[in-house]
């Protein structure tokens, strides 16, 4: 999985709860970040998307420091799907167009294509977002981020608010997407079974520190540190 140079490199990052974060993410990898609530997982994703700036340390993307990219462009390339869908008022189409139309990259057929990725019928394009169920909103939120054609996809507990069936559906959507597009994924989840199904490397975060990392599912089956062992029981 680890081919060549890292696509994102975090060096000695410190921000709020996060301490001494060193992490390389390689192209095409599916990294799963897990750990207790409040351990800094969302904060980490916000740093990746540059919704926050680290107090100390540096982040690089394709070997160039984050600061060398214009901020909106970087955020498009390293797309974030927030934990809750947070859709904009209006139609599904309005939401899907939001990112691309800011750089005049929206194409007419793109809406149908995006809905197909997330397995929603194309007549959903003109539905108001108020009429969508929780699972459908989450799909639209995912499609809205994909509309920017990111190189890296950040997912913050994409199924935490959903029931079991909807979770399975979304997982299916995600694994299809990942396989088809060879996109690099960094996903936060608290569902360990999901981590095993979707990830190939696990990062265990506790109190803002990376306590352990390793290939999935091994890291969950043979945890080395006491912290992870007690988290898993």
């Amino acid at each position: 999985m680890r081919e060549g140079e890292p696509i994102i490199r975090l060096k000695d990052i410190q921000y709020g709860p996060l301490q001494d974060i060193n992490l390389n993410v390689y192209p095409g990898e599916r990294v799963i970040v897990f750990g207790p609530s409040g351990s800094g997982k969302s904060t980490l994703l916000h740093l990746f998307n540059r919704l926050l700036d680290a107090e100390k340390g540096s982040i690089s993307f394709y070997d160039q420091p984050y600061e060398s990219y214009t901020i909106p462009k970087l955020r498009r390339k390293i797309g974030l799907v927030l934990q809750a869908p947070h859709l904009f008022p209006g139609t599904v189409l309005d939401n899907l167009k939001f990112g691309p139309s800011m750089v005049d990259e929206w194409k007419d057929k793109q809406g149908e294509e995006l809905l197909e990725y997330v397995q929603l019928p194309s007549d959903y394009l003109h539905r108001s977002v108020d009429q969508l169920s929780g699972g459908e909103k989450q799909r639209v939120s995912l499609a809205r981020t994909l509309a920017n054609k990111p190189d890296v996809l950040l997912l913050d507990e994409p199924t935490s608010a959903l029931d079991e069936q909807t979770t399975e559906d979304i997982e299916e959507v995600l694994s299809m997407l990942i396989d088809k597009h060879q996109i690099t994924v960094i996903m936060v989840t608290h569902q360990l079974s999901q981590a095993k199904r979707l990830g190939d490397r696990g990062i265990y975060l506790e109190d803002g520190r990376i306590m352990e990392e390793g290939p999935l599912p091994d890291i969950l089956e043979k945890p080395k540190t006491e912290e992870l062992q007690s988290f898993l029981v």
Partner: peptide
């Protein structure tokens, strides 16, 4: 706040 973060994260100024 959530929508604003979403918009910024999608590359909005």
């Amino acid at each position: 706040e959530g929508r604003l973060l979403a918009a910024l994260s999608l590359g909005a100024e």
